[in-house]
Amino acid sequence: MTWSHPTLIDAADKLAADPIATVDSWWFTTKLHTDEAIYWVKIHTMAMQGTCHSTVSLLQEPDGHSSTKQTTESLDTVTLPGAPLDARTSILTISGDLDELQISGATDTASVQLTLQREEPVLYNGGSGLFPLFGGMNGQYALPGLTTSGTVTVDGTTHQIGGRTWFDRQWGTPGSEPSRTTWLGLDLGAGRYLSIWDTVGDGTSWLTELKADGTHTLTRAHRTEQASGHWQLTAPSLDASLTITHRGLPDSHDGLYAGICTVIGTLQGQPIAGHGYTDVFA
């Protein structure tokens, strides 16, 4: 499938590592399911300041397995994505192209092997795929609704799974401003996705909406924290009011809250429900 949308980047070309980027990131978080359980899995690798940081994290619901593994390795000891795409670190692999990707990763007690297939348009953050961030320039696009199949192995038992994955590709040159951020990626079903940025810290946000036909809408939004600690997101131009319940993945640590979300509310005046992901850098 092809969709026509004017951008400042070529998503297929930008799958590969950017030799001039200060930060280069390939981020996957997925909601997987069997008949009895839900598995949330995060696989992420990022080159920054001469090193490669990798994360594999898994959370089973309800009340199941939780594990994570993180590594910091020299760029000389890993393979970062080139063309064709082929990334390898000591705990994960990423390969494929814009239409089909294979990813795998392992903690000390769990592993995943997944195939991701794209059937929907690319989400270009900011509409063009490039936008200023913290005084620098940031490139970012997402494949937010990848159809996912494969296996999850936990404590020696392998499960066949299916689900959906959000892939975020990011690169850029950071500026001198504080990198305080709350980001949300919401999968609201029917080919509708929201990528939301709060870089001020007071809930003032901007979002990019992607529809199934490839239409992008950029608009303002506001996020408020409820007494429960969860969030209410409003976007007047989309007639949207969303309640976002979130909980942390096991790779959260000082300075980073990595979370998974459940979403209910209204969009364009209609009831809607979905799920999503969040990264909060304090």
Results as ranks from 00 to 15, higher is better:
216 H>G: 10
16 A>H: 10
189 G>H: 10
176 S>E: 13
118 R>E: 07
257 Y>K: 15
2 T>I: 07
222 H>N: 15
232 Q>D: 12
168 D>H: 03
144 P>M: 02
122 V>D: 07
159 H>F: 07
81 P>E: 04
238 L>M: 11
108 D>G: 00
241 S>A: 09
230 H>I: 02
5 H>I: 02
20 I>E: 13
124 Y>A: 10
259 G>V: 04
76 D>M: 06
37 A>R: 15
117 Q>E: 14
181 T>M: 08
268 Q>P: 00
260 I>Y: 09
212 A>I: 01
248 G>N: 14
178 P>D: 09
153 T>D: 12
70 Q>V: 02
40 W>S: 12
211 K>R: 12
254 D>M: 09
249 L>G: 09
75 L>P: 05
111 S>W: 05
90 S>C: 06
271 P>V: 05
20 I>C: 05
111 S>Y: 00
201 G>Y: 09
143 L>R: 14
5 H>N: 14
133 L>Y: 13
177 E>Q: 13
236 P>N: 11
249 L>Y: 04
255 G>Q: 10
262 T>S: 15
66 S>I: 05
13 D>V: 01
107 T>S: 11
123 L>I: 00
216 H>M: 09
161 I>D: 10
97 D>M: 05
39 Y>I: 03
247 R>W: 07
134 F>I: 04
213 D>G: 14
34 T>V: 06
69 K>I: 01
136 G>S: 07
172 G>P: 03
133 L>F: 11
116 L>D: 11
12 A>N: 15
251 D>E: 15
77 T>D: 13
75 L>I: 12
262 T>Y: 04
49 Q>W: 08
194 L>F: 02
80 L>P: 07
234 T>V: 11
129 G>M: 06
239 D>G: 14
